[in-house]
Nucleic acid binder design. Sequence first.
DNA 1: ATCATAATGAGAATGATTCTTACTCTTGAC
DNA 2: GTCAAGAGTAAGAATCATTCTCATTATGAT
Lengths: 152, 152
Amino acid sequence: MNLDNSGLHQLVATKLDEAGQMYTQKRQKLVDALSQAGPCTLPELLEFSDGIAQSSAYRNLTVLEEMGVVRRLVHHGEYGRWELSEELTGHHHHHLVCHSCDVVIDVELPTHIEHLMDEAFEKAAIGSKFTVDRHNIDIVGTCANCQETAQA
Amino acid sequence: MNLDNSGLHQLVATKLDEAGQMYTQKRQKLVDALSQAGPCTLPELLEFSDGIAQSSAYRNLTVLEEMGVVRRLVHHGEYGRWELSEELTGHHHHHLVCHSCDVVIDVELPTHIEHLMDEAFEKAAIGSKFTVDRHNIDIVGTCANCQETAQA
DNA sequence: ATCATAATGAGAATGATTCTTACTCTTGAC
DNA sequence: GTCAAGAGTAAGAATCATTCTCATTATGAT
């Protein structure tokens, strides 16, 4: 368990405990990795939190997702990605997605923009009788690394 | 070939021709289905444009994607989805996504909102040295059908 | 017509994710 | 302390959307 994350771990521990789930070392490692590295693929998670079996990682991520601790993202790369849930971090955010290397980076937008968007989305949904719960925004482009690589 | 879509088919035919690709009946059926039904999964496409083999559908969709005719979407359902490219239809749009049945419906947002968002996204990307090419927005909620079903 | 090239479809192969199962660890009651 | 019950773990099998292979069929140019 990473000391910098004691608050985070405390939160997760409570959440899991209330649901009768254990907050094992393996699960802590996954949460640590996600909190330090941002949205990760499974191979990345296995690397960062080494000593964990692939099947266990998948199973634990599924459990953590059901508990509202992590969220599964899906983009175009070969692997899915996982991140800590907004419910847990308290930070509403969106994603910069590199269409060259598939990396995903968090970004936050100004509150007034979020408000404007929420209003616009609500209005847009009325015509189709949709009830809006949330929005996901991918800002797609080229990351700094891939821009350099393209130069060379 | 659907007569209502003659303009569309003409465009696609030209695009494919320039690349030395044939615009066969099967490919026309796929384009027709997408133009009538909006974002479709593969099973949906097979149903709408029947008489097409699964492997051919996948192969043709890949070809059409490379030609810029269709775009592949990826959400949480078991199947990927396909839609006509904005380049082809000329309509920038986003998606209402039902988290209960995974259906996807197109929506357009007012131009001034798109402008505001583009500006905000550009600014947000600077910190991470991202070059922005486009944005994808999913407005996630519950579709009319699933709201009714939940009532019953 | 004939030939070269492209498209098709049946089925095999791929590979991320999920499932099964036998084993190990925790925890709480006694 | 120890024992049983329940929860977690990991190795490998299974699943299944998607991709690939290859033999056959259609198309278009000459």
